[in-house]
């Protein structure tokens, strides 16, 4: 694996996009800002594999941590509450 585009700690935003088809970036996180908490590794892109396109290309997969209060403006719990999920690199943009 080469050096990941987004190292641990990098602020990222999930692309605000709504493509059709098999997508693994959850709807409720699109447009939201988080932070890379782990680089999982390189995997085949499920958005291609789902349609039988197996060209061997790999995408880096990250674990991204979000503050619940950032995802849900009316979140009722403490600000320390978080949500972590796995996001493929094609869904990440650098965030300020």
């Amino acid at each position: 694996m080469t050096a990941p585009r987004f190292p641990v700690g990098a602020p990222v935003r999930i692309r605000r996009a709504w493509p059709p088809g098999h997508v693994r970036a959850p709807w409720y996180l699109r447009g939201h800002r988080g932070e890379v908490c782990a680089v999982v590794g390189d995997f085949g892109n499920p958005e291609e594999l789902a349609y039988g396109r197996r060209d061997g290309a790999k995408l880096t997969l990250y674990r991204v941590r979000f503050r619940q209060t950032e995802i849900w403006p009316d979140y009722a719990g403490p600000t320390a509450d978080t949500l972590e999920t796995e996001i493929y690199e094609n869904w990440l943009e650098p965030a300020a």
Partner: peptide
């Protein structure tokens, strides 16, 4: 609303303890 769901399972998490939800979306 993880804290409410946990409370419905009978699990009260004190405010001083953070709740982290893990959404399994991909390879893990």
């Amino acid at each position: 609303e993880p804290r409410q769901v946990l409370a419905e399972f009978g699990t009260a998490i004190p405010d001083g303890m953070a709740v982290t939800v893990h959404d399994s979306t991909a390879e893990l």
